[in-house]
Design a protein around this nucleic acid. Sequence first.
DNA 1: TTCGTCCTGGTA
DNA 2: TACCAGGACGAA
Length: 270
Amino acid sequence: MPELPEVETTLRAILPVLKDKKILDVEVLRRNMVMDPDTFPKKIKGHTVKNVERQGKYLLIALDHGMTLIIHLRMSGRLGLRKASDPPLSYERVRFHLPSNLLLIFNDPRTLGRAYVIPTNQLPHHPPLKKLGPDALTVSEKEFVDRLSRKRGILKSVLLNQSFVAGIGNIYADESCFVAKVDPRRTAQSLTPAEKKRLHAAVIETLEKGVSNMGTSFSDFADLFGKPGKNQRSLFVYGRSGKKCHTCGTILQRTVIGQRGTVWCPKCQQ
DNA sequence: TTCGTCCTGGTA
DNA sequence: TACCAGGACGAA
C-alpha cells in the first residue's frame, strides 16, 4: 500500500521521464477514478510537464498552463511506464500518452486511487493539501515533539493522521513504533519527552529505510517498470502477527486500532 | 472521536 | 461464500 516511501520511489522514477514532455493524449478507462471524467483529458492533453513534486502521499504534476495534475495512489494504485506497443497491464485505469511511443499508466486494481486537475495557484488553498502536516521524512525533532505533545488520542491513530505529519501509513506506523520501543496502544499524551524524541528518530529511520529499499511491496506496489520494492524483506512487525520478534523471540501480537490492523511486540514495546 | 463507505483481489 | 486488506473522507 503506497505510503511516503512508495510515493517518493514513484516520484524519483517519473520525474526524469516526465519533465519537459508533452502529454499527447489521455484515456480514462475507469471514470470513477478521475474527477470530472468528461473534461479531465481536455485539461491535460497537449500540455507539457514542468515539474513533479510530492506532498505527503500526493503526487503533484505541474503543467505548463498553470494547472497541476494531482494523483493519489491510495490503497493499491501505482504508476507504470511502458511502450504503447507492449501488451496492456491488468487494471489499467488511466493512460497518458507521451512522445516516443511511451505510455504512463495509472494502474489500480481496487480503483480507490484518484486523479484530478486544479489550478496551480490554488494548491495552497486546496483542502486535502492545506491540512497536511509537515513531511514525515524531513520534519524536525522539535516540530515533531511539539506537535505530538498537542495531540490527544491513541498513538497509532495520531501517526496515521496526515494533519499531524504527512506520509505515514499503516505499515510504517507499526514499524516506527517498534523501532522506538513504544506500545502503539498508548495515548500520545503518555509518552515521555525521551520517548517522543525516540519516536521521531524511528519515523525518519523507518521511512528512509523504506525509500532506500524502493518501497514495500506486498501484492500491489512496484516501481515504474513493474519491479517490486525490497522493504517487505526487512519489516520487524507489520504482517508478522503470531511470529517471533526478531529482537527477543516473543510472539508478536495483533489488534485493531482505528479500524487498522496493528502488530507489536508486547515485550520490546512498553 | 468513531464508524461506514468506497472497491475488488486474495484467502480461509 | 464470506471476509479481509486499508487511505481518505464524510457523517453521526
